[in-house]
C-alpha cells in the first residue's frame, strides 16, 4: 500500500460564475520515504494538488487516501485531527506567528495534543537543535533571518513527528545559499525517513529530490524518478 494515493481526482473551482477545472482526473501514488517535487508553470494546479494532498482541499470528484485512509471521507473535525497527526506544512513565507517566539511557534502543533508543557518544551528544543537553532529559541520571528525563520517553520512542521511534510516553495523567499542549506536540511530529514512533497519553481532544488512530477493544465504531464541525489 502506498503512503499517498490520489485516485482520479478532479477539482473544479467556481470563479465568478465560471467553472474552472484546476485538476483533471489526476492519479498519483507516493511511497513512504519519497522526496517529491511538484513543478510546473504558475496556475498549472501544483498548489491545488498540494493542498488536496494535505487534507485541506477536497476534490470535486475522486479520492485521496493517506496511509489507506480516505481523508475526505472523514468529517471536518476528524480530518483536522488527521492533519494534526499525519501532516506537517511548510509555507513559502514561513508563516510564523509574529507574536510568538521561535520555540512557542514550534510548540504550536503540540498545543492541541495531550503533551504536558515540559514535554512540549523538550520536543520543541530537540527539533530546534536539529535545525540548528537551539540558541535562538527565545527570539521572535522578526529577530531571525529568513533562513532561520524557514528552519523554525520546518521545526514546527516536524515537531509532532508526522510521516509527511508538504512544503510550498520553501526556498522561494531565500537567497541561493540559504535556499541550498534549507534543501540540505530537507534532504537530511528525508534520509531519516520523512516523506516530503514540495512545490518548487527552483530547478536547483531538484537535485535533492527523488522524483519530479510535472503538473501542467491541471494534469500530471510526467513523473520522473531520479537516481542517487545530492
Amino acid at each position: 500500500m502506498s503512503l499517498i494515493e490520489v485516485k482520479n481526482c478532479t477539482k473544479i473551482y467556481d470563479s465568478g460564475g465560471t467553472a474552472v477545472e484546476a485538476l483533471k482526473e489526476v492519479d498519483l501514488t507516493i511511497e513512504e520515504g519519497e522526496f517529491v517535487a511538484l513543478i510546473g508553470p504558475s496556475g498549472s494546479g501544483k498548489s491545488t494538488l498540494l493542498t488536496m494532498l494535505g487534507a485541506l482541499n477536497p476534490p470535486t470528484r475522486g479520492k485521496v487516501l493517506i496511509d489507506g485512509i480516505d481523508v475526505y471521507d472523514l468529517p471536518a473535525e476528524r480530518r483536522a485531527d488527521f492533519r494534526s497527526s499525519y501532516i506537517g506544512f511548510v509555507f513559502q513565507q514561513f508563516q510564523l506567528i509574529p507574536y510568538l517566539t521561535a520555540i512557542e511557534n514550534v510548540m504550536l502543533p503540540l498545543a492541541i495534543l495531550r503533551y504536558s508543557h515540559a514535554e512540549q518544551v523538550k520536543m520543541a528544543e530537540n527539533v530546534l537543535e536539529k535545525v540548528g537553532l537551539a540558541d535562538k529559541a527565545k527570539r521572535l520571528p522578526n529577530q531571525l533571518s529568513g533562513g532561520e525563520q524557514e528552519r523554525v517553520a520546518i521545526a514546527r512542521a516536524i515537531v509532532n513527528q508526522p510521516p509527511i511534510v508538504f512544503a510550498d516553495e520553501p526556498t522561494g523567499s531565500l537567497d541561493t545559499k540559504t535556499g541550498e542549506e534549507i534543501m540540505k536540511l530537507f534532504h537530511t530529514l528525508n534520509q531519516e525517513g520523512l516523506t516530503i512533497v514540495m512545490v518548487t519553481h527552483n530547478e536547483e532544488n531538484l537535485k535533492y529530490v527523488k522524483r519530479t512530477i510535472v503538473v501542467r493544465d491541471g494534469m500530471i504531464e510526467n513523473s520522473n524518478f531520479h537516481g542517487d541525489v545530492a
Binding site: L56, E77, S84, I87, Q95, I97, P109, I112
Partner: peptide, 16 residues
Amino acid sequence: TAEIGVYQAMGYRKGN
C-alpha cells in the same frame, strides 16, 4: 486570516 489558515493546516479544530 493567514494565521488562522496556518492553525487549520496544523490540525486545529474550529473549536480550538
